[in-house]
Amino acid sequence: MPFLTTADGTEIYYTEQGSGRPIVLSHGWPLSSDAWQVELKIFADAGYRVIAHDRRGHGRSSKTYQGNDMTTYAKDLAELVEHLDLEDVVVIGHSTGGGEVVRYAAQFGAHRVAKVVTVGAVPPIMVRSADNPDGTPIEVFDDIRAGVLRDRSQFYRELAVSFYGFNRDRAQVSQGAVDDFWRQGMLVNLAAAYDCVKAFSETDQTDDLRALKVPILIAHGDDDQIVPIAAAAEKSINLVSDGVLKVYPGAPHGVFGSYQEQLDADILEFIEAG
């Protein structure tokens, strides 16, 4: 399996399929590059070189105790892109991965990135404060940390239900999707999973969004129970200089089913335009 060893000695696992213009995919918490299996094939079939990595602490990458923060995640991504010598890159990030690719493009990869796509992404900042009264109360994130620390196996099983919107009326529940969410979550070491909650909830990326100089597609489901659209995508679109907001009615946080099919088609259209 291919690995990159970063400057601080962390091993980052990555996989790639296809050839052509590069697309780099960054996954959400607590998942891994396996969350992008459909996109790895579909985008490769469309003529692209598609790369997905496991964030430090996640999947097959090193089980890290340190560096579980948004800036280090973005630096790891920068080292991967430099290692593979990618140019004219499209970076795509879901949830925490959306924060990762935005920070990477804004602070480390401006000379290599051509377009950015975020899906259910955490920027500009999730946690509620005096400056962000529409955010999510800190107690919600404290409960996530407590759940991970107390019984992460059961916590991931329960989280998967709202993650994919399976708790909604008339939802077509996939036990397989729930099981795979659990499988991927259990690969994250506890310290990395715990610390990442602070990274995805408390990192202020307002300046990152303002600094972007390339087109960005901001995709978000309007029934996202994990990263509410009003405090995320609807604010982000007003901070970027060249952005398109695409709202998916009734879509959850997790990328699955008909939402995934439409999203992937829209991403390809965005990449190929202009």
Rank of each mutant, 00 (worst) to 15 (best):
G120L: 04
V113Q: 07
N132D: 01
V127E: 07
G98R: 11
Q66T: 11
A44P: 06
E139L: 10
G99Y: 04
D85L: 01
D54V: 11
A130P: 00
D88R: 14
H94E: 10
D142Q: 15
R55S: 03
E82V: 12
R112K: 13
L77Q: 03
R60T: 04
T72Q: 14
P124F: 05
A130Y: 01
S129M: 04
G120H: 03
R60M: 06
H58R: 05
R128M: 12
H58N: 14
V81P: 03
T64A: 10
D45W: 15
Y65F: 07
G57P: 06
K115Y: 02
D131G: 06
A46R: 15
R55Q: 13
A44D: 02
R55D: 00
A46N: 13
V119K: 08
H83E: 06
T118R: 05
H53N: 14
D131R: 04
V102I: 15
G97M: 04
L77R: 01
E87G: 11
Y104M: 12
T136V: 15
V140G: 02
E79S: 09
A106D: 13
D45L: 12
V127H: 04
T71G: 06
I92G: 10
E82G: 06
L80E: 09
I51L: 14
Y104S: 08
H58G: 07
R49I: 09
H111E: 12
A105F: 10
V140R: 14
V89K: 02
T64Y: 01
N68V: 06
S61M: 05
R56S: 00
E82A: 14
D85K: 14
L84E: 02
P133M: 02
E82R: 14
L84G: 07
E87R: 15
A110S: 13
A106C: 10
V81E: 01
D142T: 02
T72F: 12
N132W: 00
K115I: 01
V119N: 07
G135R: 04
H53C: 10
V119I: 15
R128A: 12
V122E: 07
K75F: 09
D134M: 05
G59L: 11
V50R: 11
G98Y: 09
H58S: 15
V122A: 12
M126N: 05
A110V: 04
D54G: 12
D76L: 08
R60I: 02
I144A: 03
D85I: 04
P133N: 10
L86Y: 06
V119Q: 03
P137M: 07
P133L: 03
Q107S: 14
F108M: 05
P123S: 09
